[in-house]
Write a protein that binds this DNA or RNA. Structure first.
Length: 599
RNA sequence: UCGGGGAUGGUGUAAUUGGCAACACAACUGGUUCUGGUCCAGUCAUUGGGGGUUCGAGUCCUCCUCCCCGAACCA
């Protein structure tokens, strides 16, 4: 797995660093199609927040450009004033920077409205566009359907002069919303629905966050996108698979425009499609995300359970992990859905190397060392233990952790009646306290209900280095926090927001699959004193528990980014389902097919 | 129904373009270890189905099956 994190060799699963898009770019370079230029763009509509799905497109657009010495612009595809706003523009710029990409320039499709308008008049003059009087429904009917040709609109043969006059009237605000549109005059019988006289302009008497009230007609996506690419000098216009059919139209528009006037060297841009990134148990649809936020299912657009980039940031996912993930999954023309675990594995890989270690106890159980020394006043001695900050990185140094006779340990780390393969503390057994001593459990105190309230141990003063002089071994090392020095913290533990692999697949509404207990707030957790030095937004590893990110607004609130791999949890899981499995096989008599864990 | 795209293990991505099916995630086995973490070693697919061409097919031909996208004045 070393190739995974070596940024020098971006790979697509096989470590080759090649894919069909890079093949195309290299072929174009070899044939000098664009006079040696490579230029891409990331073109979001500013109507929502960037999410993990965008991250893949961003990584592709930017890395393809930079790998070949080209450039990549951020372009806001702001052609629909009804849905867009400057807040989203700012958020996208910010999130893009956080992800680690810097566009050579920031552009706006709205800056091209004049040019688009001029070109539209040109197409009208050439008889390639006309003003349509029919309403949206009539247009839809006239378009026909799959396997059914469309029919020409009565407006289709309107004289050029009249088209020009009406178009100018539309632009001048003389016609109400929805009364007319400008359509390209292509082919109502075309087998590709996109080519059946697509709409180029619609009337919207609406304020645009950038162009203000200059316009009351706005270009559609298809009429704006390829032309914006051409204006900017884009060479490779990368987009997702569902735009495949739009490509024919993209080319048609560009073929009928005087692009030479733009002055770019090399040929005109062309579109290539790749599969978008989808994750199981996850939803990226803006509509659904909005319902989650507005319906109070999550705390906001940066709730750590969401797939938005700001949520991942708040949760503690390092941008490098997201980038590595995007490079790793590669680009293909096959729709695919990845399990979030894969992303998590990149998060662990990154954080394992970088996150400082600390000790914290989520569910405290009191452990008393009965032979711990006291001073002359009978107060238990406090000793400073030296703990390694990151075993993966010696340069991270060490820190002092106060140790004394009364400690908090994890409830999970003690059992009165240990199940098989349980290595942790139990009466009579000796374990190691991390960075401390070997301790042996002598007995435990229980309350009236039989719950363990306190564990008694003796420590071996000879084992300060963590090893016993006589060479005896222990099977477990557990973490702890000195009770007298404990800093109270709050931890937020997350499960996936949706328990269904494909949210909404069952009932049609993804919200029906919202996991009711996707977040657990642990309020009585404690941590070692050094936790206070951790800056907001920083990520630490709580040893044996996982990676936790401090909330930027609340210093002692920790979001768990991801847990550690947990073999003990797997053993318990297997044990829990084992009886079920054998019962099932017994009753089925031939059907083996060992049941796979569905997660 | 028409057009477009696609199908390789539990999952995802590869395969020098007709030549030993590779890498990773997950899982499992063992080793190392002051984190049941990390690390190391190992196990886990004859490529959707049928037929054909070939010394040789994941790759070429053919028939079939299944999946995704497309009929906004959204992008």
């Amino acid at each position: 797995m070393p190739s995974r994190s070596s940024a020098s060799n971006p790979s697509s699963g096989d470590g080759s660093g090649r894919d069909f898009i890079r093949d195309l770019v290299e072929a174009d370079l070899a044939s000098d199609r664009f006079a040696g230029r490579v230029q891409t763009r990331f073109p979001p509509e500013p109507n929502g927040y960037l999410h993990i799905g965008h991250a893949k497109a961003i990584c592709l657009d930017f890395t393809v450009a930079t790998e070949y010495g080209g450039r990549c612009f951020l372009r806001f595809d702001d052609t629909n004033p009804a849905t867009e706003s400057p807040e989203y523009v700012d958020a996208m710029v910010e999130d893009l920077a956080w992800l680690g990409f810097e566009p050579q320039d920031i552009r706006y499709a709205s800056d091209y409205f004049e040019q688009l308008y001029a070109w539209a008049e040109l197409l009208i003059e050439r008889g390639l566009a006309y003003i349509e009087d029919q309403d949206a429904e009539a247009i839809s009917v006239g378009r026909g359907g799959f396997g059914r040709p469309g029919t020409d609109s009565p407006s289709r043969d309107r004289p050029i002069e009249e088209n020009l006059r009406l178009f100018r009237e539309m632009a001048a605000g003389q016609h109400p919303d929805g009364s007319r549109v400008l359509r390209a005059r292509i082919d109502m019988q075309h087998e590709n629905m996109q080519m059946r006289d697509p709409v180029m302009y619609r009337i919207r008497h609406e304020h645009h966050y950038r162009s203000g009230d200059r316009w009351c007609i706005y270009p559609t996506y298809d009429w704006a996108h390829g032309q914006s690419d051409a204006i900017e000098g884009v060479t490779h216009s990368l987009c997702t698979l569902e735009f495949r059919d739009n490509r024919t139209l993209y080319d048609w528009y560009l073929d009928h425009l005087p692009l030479d006037e733009l002055g770019h060297t090399g040929g005109r841009p062309y579109q290539t499609e790749f599969a978008r990134l989808e994750l199981t148990h996850t939803v990226t649809s803006k509509r659904v995300l909005r319902r989650l936020v507005e319906g109070g299912h999550v705390d906001g657009w940066d709730d750590p359970r969401l797939p938005t980039l700001r949520a991942l940031r708040r949760r503690g996912y390092p941008p490098a992990a997201i980038r590595d993930f995007c490079v790793y999954i590669g680009v293909a023309r096959t729709n695919s859905r990845h399990a979030p675990e894969l992303l998590e594995s990149f998060v662990r890989t990154e954080l394992n190397a970088t996150a400082p270690r600390r000790m914290a106890v989520l569910r405290p159980l009191k452990l008393v060392i009965t032979n711990w020394p006291t001073d002359d006043d009978g107060v238990p001695v406090t000793e400073l233990r030296e703990a390694v900050n990151n075993p993966e990185n010696p340069a991270a140094g060490t820190r002092q952790v106060p140790f004394s006779g009364t400690l908090w340990i994890e409830q999970d780390d003690f059992r009165l009646d240990p199940p098989p393969k349980y290595f942790r503390l139990t009466p009579g057994r000796e374990v190691r306290l991390r960075a401390g001593y070997l301790v042996r459990c002598t007995d435990a105190v229980t309350d009236n209900d039989g719950n363990v309230t306190e564990v008694h141990c003796t420590y071996d003063p000879q084992t300060s280095g963590g090893q016993a002089p006589d060479g005896r071994k222990v099977k477990a090392t557990i973490h702890w926090v000195s009770a007298a020095h404990a800093v109270p913290i709050t931890a937020a533990l997350y499960e996936r927001l949706f328990d269904a692999e494909l949210p909404g697949d069952r009932t049609g509404d993804p919200l029906d699959d919202v996991h009711p207990a996707s977040r657990e707030i642990v309020t009585d957790a404690v941590a070692e004193p050094a936790i206070a030095e951790v800056a907001g937004g920083a990520v630490v590893q709580f040893e044996r528990l996982g990676y936790f990110c401090t909330d930027s607004e609340s210093a002692l609130l920790f979001h768990r980014a991801v847990g550690l791999r947990d073999e003990w949890a797997n053993i318990q899981k297997r044990r829990a389902q084992a009886p079920k499995q054998s019962a099932k096989q017994g009753s089925e008599r031939g059907g083996r097919q060992p049941r796979r864990e569905a997660t």
